[in-house]
Design a protein around this nucleic acid. Structure first.
Length: 200
DNA sequence: GGGTTGCATGGTCGGCAAGG
DNA sequence: CCTTGCCGACCATGCAACCC
């Protein structure tokens, strides 16, 4: 299925990927006038780790990258999309940035066009069988909400203390800042969309 | 003060042997 | 042959010392 196309693209860009992430992190940090120390404190990631990520000596996991993006005030999709440059209202599938979490193997596709000024981001996720991803809560997080809409397979979504089992067609609303975790309890990959509403 | 690097630590994964 | 447990290798991460 489409995974094969994506993985081919991933292979070809894998070498540059860490470099791109590092450059993006550094650029966003500089733009906000933050030092490594300040970003480390805001994100909960040590400044040594941030330094290594910026210099492409380490590849961050999804959870770690999410914390950095949160501290930098951008969503993950904005983080990946901005490298594209010019704002174009049409985002062809071939140009949509794809990212693979080294920890869980999940594949994240930034679907919505960047730079449109829209307060909404749409992300498509391919979630491998039996995979786990956990996002730590952000006590000082600004108001950011999201809908998780499942297309195929099953996802167990833990929000706070509650575990929601989502099947094809199900849609869950939640605050991004809450502690949440994704788990695919089946032997088949799951596919879902995340629609993120950015806080003001 | 800001950024980099050496080193230790904890977790995960694959290989391998023993037991059923 | 399959499962289970052990062990070593590897990797991400953070602390602290170091350099500029």
């Amino acid at each position: 299925m489409m995974m094969s196309v994506n993985s081919t693209i991933m292979e070809s860009t894998a070498d540059d990927f860490e470099k791109t992430v590092g450059e993006r992190v550094r650029a966003l940090r500089m733009r906000r006038g933050l030092t490594l120390d300040q970003l480390a404190e805001a994100s909960g990631v040590s400044r040594a780790m941030i330094s290594r990520i910026e210099r492409a000596e380490a590849s961050p996991t999804a959870a770690l990258l999410a914390r950095l993006c949160s501290a930098l005030g951008v969503s993950l999709s904005v983080f990946f999309a901005e490298e594209g440059g010019v704002a174009d209202p049409l985002m062809r599938r071939a140009r949509q940035p794809v990212w693979r979490d080294p920890e869980s193997g999940y594949l994240r596709r930034a679907v919505s066009p960047p730079g449109t000024g829209s307060g909404t981001d749409i992300v498509e996720v391919e979630f491998p069988p039996q995979a786990h991803v956990r996002f730590p809560g952000r006590p000082t997080g600004r108001s950011q909400t999201q809908h998780v809409w499942v297309f195929e397979g099953v996802i167990e979504l833990t929000v706070g203390e509650t575990v929601h089992r989502l099947e094809a067609g199900d849609c869950l609303f939640m605050n991004v800042g809450d502690v949440h975790a994704y788990h695919n309890p089946t032997d088949a990959p799951a596919r879902y969309a995340v629609v993120i509403a950015l806080g003001s």
